[in-house]
């Protein structure tokens, strides 16, 4: 058994080192396939990051009547925080609302003069509420429509923002679906190209496989070296991809922050280094070995 394994490994390595042009073509195609898979892994995280930052910007505000006391509002805040759909609640007092408005419009003299003429703070206290998902805002808005709160609440701006919120989340969900479909398509294309290239390379060896069968070689004795060759091709393709992606992350890492604020490719690469190594090694060696396995099988029927 050990002799058999040793011979298979030796023969696989010899085939690899002798059939240079075919091997270069196989490695090149595997590099493309692995690069596609790695890019999809990175893009999945980058787009998730983008989607999260869009989602972070969505919230609803509940404005309270001027006569509502801070104590009552804080009680409502505590009750809202207990709703499972609520991710975050922030209380903005009348004073904070005034300061925020003043800071925002201090250049606008007409507005500032009007505020002075009013003489009192016209702003309502409010709660800024963020839900986990877009579909949950309706339930939160309904909570404020309950009879016990109508005497405290002035208005809920959900109904005004609803079309925008819906649009954003339809877009996000469409992007997610499109991303999955596009990724699947790319994976299928990459795997098919790699499989067919290896299949063609093995097809050119069909006469040799036939001779090996006629000489009395068992299927594993014939198949083994092709699997080893496929694995070696996959391993070299993995090494090339790892170097390639390390360089790209190092060169373009800081620049990706312009595209996706807060997302640095180099940091992502370093944090997920072992996952990327696993994806590249498994896809390279896996594709090489499985493609060879299926491609050889066809010629072993003699």
């Amino acid at each position: 058994m050990i002799t058999l394994i040793k011979r298979i490994l030796k023969s696989g390595w010899k085939n690899f080192s002798r059939e240079k042009s075919l091997i270069v073509a196989n490695i090149f195609i595997l590099v493309l396939a692995i690069s596609t898979l790695t890019s999809l892994f990175i893009l999945k995280d980058a787009s998730q990051f983008l989607i999260s930052s869009i989602e972070e910007k969505v919230d609803i505000s509940v404005y309270f009547k001027l006569e509502a006391s801070e104590e009552d509002i804080l009680k409502v805040k505590d009750d809202v925080a207990k709703i499972p759909e609520v991710k975050e609640v922030k209380y903005i007092s009348q004073e904070e609302a005034l300061v925020s408005f003043t800071n925002k419009h201090k250049e606008d003299l007409v507005l500032m003069q009007s505020l002075d003429e009013v003489g009192v703070n016209p702003f309502s206290a409010s709660l800024n509420i963020r839900a986990f998902e877009a579909s949950q805002y309706q339930a939160i808005a309904d909570f404020f429509n309950s009879s016990t709160l109508t005497n405290l609440v002035e208005k809920v701006d959900y109904y005004k923002r609803k079309p925008v919120i819906d649009k954003i989340f339809t877009f996000v969900s469409s992007m997610n679906m499109l991303g999955i479909a596009f990724s699947l398509l790319l994976i299928i294309i990459a795997v098919s190209i790699a499989f067919n290239t290896i299949r063609l390379a093995i097809y050119s060896s069909r006469e040799e496989i036939k001779i090996q069968r006629l000489v009395g070689a068992s299927n594993w004795f014939i198949r083994g070296p092709f699997l080893v060759q496929g694995a070696i091709c996959g391993f070299f393709a993995f090494l090339i991809c790892l170097v390639l992606f390390s360089l790209l992350s190092w060169i373009f890492g800081p620049k990706t922050e312009f595209l996706f604020p807060g997302f640095n490719l180099l940091t992502f690469f370093l944090v997920n280094f072992w996952t990327i190594v696993f994806i590249q090694l498994a896809s390279g060696v896996g594709l090489g070995v499985l493609s060879s396995l299926f491609a050889v099988r066809k010629h072993l029927k003699i």
Partner: peptide, 24 residues
């Protein structure tokens, strides 16, 4: 059976007109 054919073929030495050598 196909998987047992190697055992038959190992009892036979075949020489072909077109040699059938493994080129690699």
């Amino acid at each position: 059976k196909t998987k047992e054919l190697p055992f038959l073929r190992r009892k036979i030495g075949a020489v072909f007109q077109d040699y059938k050598l493994i080129h690699s």
